Computed example of a mutant assay.
Amino acid sequence: MSGFLGEFLGTMVLIVFGVGCGAGMSLKGSYAQKSNWTFVALAWGLAVTFGVYVAAAFGTQGHLNPAVTIGFAAFGFFPWKDVPGYLLGQFAGAFVGAVIVIIQYYPHFKAAKTAEDGNSVGIFATGPAIPNPLFNFLSETIATFFFIFSLLNLGNFTTGLKPLIVGLLIVVVGQTLGGTTGFAINPARDFAPRLAYAILPVPNKGGANWGYAWVPICGPIAGGLLAAGLQSLLV
C-alpha cells in the first residue's frame, strides 16, 4: 500500500478543484455559470498543479492518474510493487473529491431541476462532443499520449515550480486536444466521480452514461502505454 495516502490526498484535491469547476460553471444559480472552455482548462490545470504539490508533500510521485502509473510501470519507469497503493489512492481520492463537491453544491443541485439547468453527469465525468466510439477512443489515446510523453521528459515533476509546468501542460492539452471528448486523460478522474454521481443521492440527477465510460478508461491507458513505450525506446 506504499503511496496510498499521498495519491489519495493529491487526487482528492485534483477532483475537488476540477469537478468543482464543472459544478460552478454548469449549475443553475452559480456565479461561475457563464464561464467558458478557457476557464475549464485553466481550472483543471491548476487542480493538477495543487494535487501534485499535496501528493509530493506526502511522499509520492504525484501521478494522480492510473494512465501515468500503469504506463510508467509497464516500461520500467516506476516499480510495480507500488502500483496497487497508487491506484487505490487515486480512485478513492477521486471518489471522495466528488462527494465533497456534491456537498458543496447541494443547494444548487436541488435548484437545478433538469439537465438544461446544468444538472448532469457532465459535471463529474466526460462525454463526447460528437459520439463516435472509435474516434472518441482515439481522441483520448492521442491526448493522453502527448500529456504523458511530455510528462516523461520533465524529470521529477514534483519539485520546485515543476507542478505548475504540469498544470500548464494540462491547460494546453485541454485547449488543443480536449474539445472532442472533454480530455479525461485519466481513468480515476472520470470513473470515480461518475460512480459517485450514479450511486449517491444527488437531487434531480440524470443518467451516468455508463455506455461511454469505457472510453475515458481504455483510451488514457492506451495513450499512457504508447507514450512510455516510445520513451523507453528513445532513452
Rank of each mutant, 00 (worst) to 15 (best):
E7S: 04
F8A: 13
L9E: 02
T11Q: 10
M12W: 00
G18W: 09
V19P: 11
V19W: 09
A23I: 11
G24V: 08
M25S: 10
S26D: 03
G29S: 05
S30G: 04
Q33E: 13
K34W: 06
F39N: 15
W44D: 08
G45V: 06
T49S: 15
F50K: 08
G51P: 01
V52M: 07
V52T: 08
A55Q: 00
A57P: 08
F58D: 10
F58T: 04
Q61E: 14
Q61T: 14
N65S: 05
P66V: 07
T69V: 09
I70E: 01
G71P: 02
F72Q: 09
G76C: 04
G76S: 08
P79V: 12
Y86N: 06
G89W: 00
Q90K: 09
A94Y: 00
F95S: 11
F95Q: 11
V96F: 09
A98P: 05
I100N: 01
I102V: 15
I102L: 14
I103G: 10
P107W: 02
P107F: 03
P107N: 07
H108R: 13
S120L: 07
S120N: 14
V121Y: 11
V121K: 06
I123E: 02
T126V: 02
P128D: 03
I130W: 15
N132H: 15
L134W: 10
F137M: 09
I142T: 10
F145R: 07
F146Q: 08
F146C: 07
I148G: 00
I148A: 01
F149P: 00
S150R: 01
T159V: 14
G160I: 04
K162R: 15
V166I: 13
G167K: 03
I170T: 06
I170R: 00
G174R: 03
T176W: 06
T176L: 13
G178I: 12
G178H: 10
T180E: 10
F183N: 13
F183V: 11
A184I: 08
A184V: 12
A184W: 14
N186A: 06
A188W: 07
A192Q: 04
R194I: 02
A196P: 01
A196Y: 00
Y197M: 12
Y197P: 05
I199R: 10
L200W: 09
P201T: 10
P201G: 10
P201I: 10
P201R: 09
K205M: 12
K205E: 11
N209D: 12
G211F: 12
P216F: 11
C218L: 15
G219I: 04
G219S: 12
P220E: 03
I221W: 07
I221C: 01
G224V: 03
G224L: 02
L225E: 03
L225V: 03
A227R: 09
A228P: 00
G229Y: 05
